Amino acid sequence: AAAAAAAKTADATLLVLGTDLSWAHEEHDAVGAARAISLSGGQLALLEAVAGNASKPIVVITMTATPLDLTPVFNNPKVGAVLHLGQPSVQTNGALPILFGERSPAGRAIQTVYPAAYGDMISIFDFNMRPGPSAWPRPDCPGPPTSCPRGTNPGRTYRFYTGKPVVPFGHGLSYTSFKYTLVNAPSRLSLAPLAQLLRDTSARTGASHFPRMADAAGAIAYMVNVTNTGTMDADDAVLGFVHPPGAGEGGVPLKSLFGFERVHVPAGATVSVYLYPALTDFAVTAADGTRAAKVGTYKLSFGVASPGMGYVEAPLETTISAV
């Protein structure tokens, strides 16, 4: 009641929501299936009361290491912005300059934030990344496990999740705007060196181990020009993704992050970013753990399609023969 009353006359309202280490930490999982990745009922009531009484749009600050379903926050018409600060007392430094507009945010979501229903679909004991039927019972079944229906794995992480995330991996906004331009984008790549590298690795180790990083160094180079088209100096984190042929089918990931770089770009200026996919970024892993070169047409994308943020993509044709 006091918070709601204060919001009614305040010039600006900052509402802090989230979790602390009593909610979840190492050796203590968040419990309650869907409730484990949702804001508590008390916090949702506080949000409704404060937002309902506020005379102006409010700013919600989230402090949590658990990726919470923020749908009620995003759907509240009185919420003007959401600033995620991570785990309390660990990553809170630097928030005030952003809140006062002295510096632009440039962070990117490091997790895929799922809707709360995700917690009821798949057991925490199912470690499969790929989507499909689960051998474990649905977490929301109150009966004995032997009588509960099996869960369905919708896929884990941005690489395999088939649903619509509340916050996608890599999402982030800025007080300025950016434009990406691909300056160097190869059109063809031979995967013959990758196929040979995987054969050599298997022969050397007796198994389908990952090749040594030095042996799988950058296969090709991409140059992206990042232009700050707004009026405020700001940092930008450029993310590079590989989208393989047959993405999302037969255990093939939807996309995979192959590199990133954070740069400072003054207003009106352009900064060049170089990103290098490794040979192993063009390999796929079968259900039995074996790895093979995946030939076909790839898509290389840079950035995340968020309002005002840079994004560009280009096709890449791969073959097994030398180019």
Rank of each mutant, 00 (worst) to 15 (best):
R138S: 03
S272W: 00
L68I: 13
G206M: 04
M63L: 15
T19G: 05
S306G: 11
K255Q: 10
S134T: 10
V90R: 15
G172M: 05
G52C: 09
G230L: 01
P72R: 14
Y161W: 11
S321R: 11
A51F: 06
V273I: 07
G155A: 13
S123D: 05
A34F: 01
P266A: 06
L68P: 07
P133Q: 14
D288P: 06
F100T: 09
V226I: 04
T205E: 11
G143I: 04
V59N: 05
V273D: 04
T9V: 15
Q43T: 10
A10M: 09
P139Q: 09
L173T: 14
V238Q: 04
D126G: 07
T229P: 00
N228S: 00
H25P: 00
L189I: 12
H28Q: 06
A237S: 07
P186V: 11
S55L: 07
A292D: 08
T13H: 04
A237P: 00
K164W: 09
V79T: 09
Y311S: 05
Y298D: 09
P266R: 07
M129L: 15
L182R: 04
V273R: 06
P307G: 12
P145K: 11
T152N: 15
L15K: 06
D120C: 06
K56A: 08
H209V: 02
L194K: 11
P149R: 14
G163H: 13
A135K: 15
H84P: 03
V31R: 02
V312E: 10
K255F: 01
V90T: 15
A216M: 12
A216Q: 13
L15S: 06
V252H: 05
N75F: 05
T92W: 11
T231W: 00
T318E: 10
K56H: 09
L279A: 07
L173K: 07
V16K: 02
A216S: 15
A314F: 05
S174A: 14
G119N: 03
P67E: 11
T92N: 14
C148Y: 09
A292R: 15
A234W: 01
A287F: 12
A267W: 03
P186N: 09
I122M: 04
G143P: 00
P115R: 07
I220P: 01
Y118M: 05
A221Y: 03
A192D: 12
P168F: 11
L254M: 12
A117K: 10
S40L: 05
A293G: 07
T176H: 05
A207N: 08
K255I: 00
S134A: 08
G296I: 11
A51G: 13
K78H: 15
A7Y: 10
R212W: 07
Y158T: 04
P105Y: 10
S202N: 04
P115N: 07
V238W: 03
Y298H: 12
R103H: 04
G143T: 06
L279P: 01
A278P: 01
G32H: 05
Q111T: 02
S177E: 13
M232Q: 09
A135Q: 14
G32W: 02
L21S: 15
R35F: 03
F169A: 05
A247D: 04
A267C: 02
P145I: 12
N184I: 03
S202Y: 06
P277C: 10
E317K: 12
R130T: 15
N184L: 04
A24Y: 00
I220T: 13
A278C: 11
G155P: 09
D288V: 11
G296M: 09
P72F: 12
V273Q: 06
T152E: 15
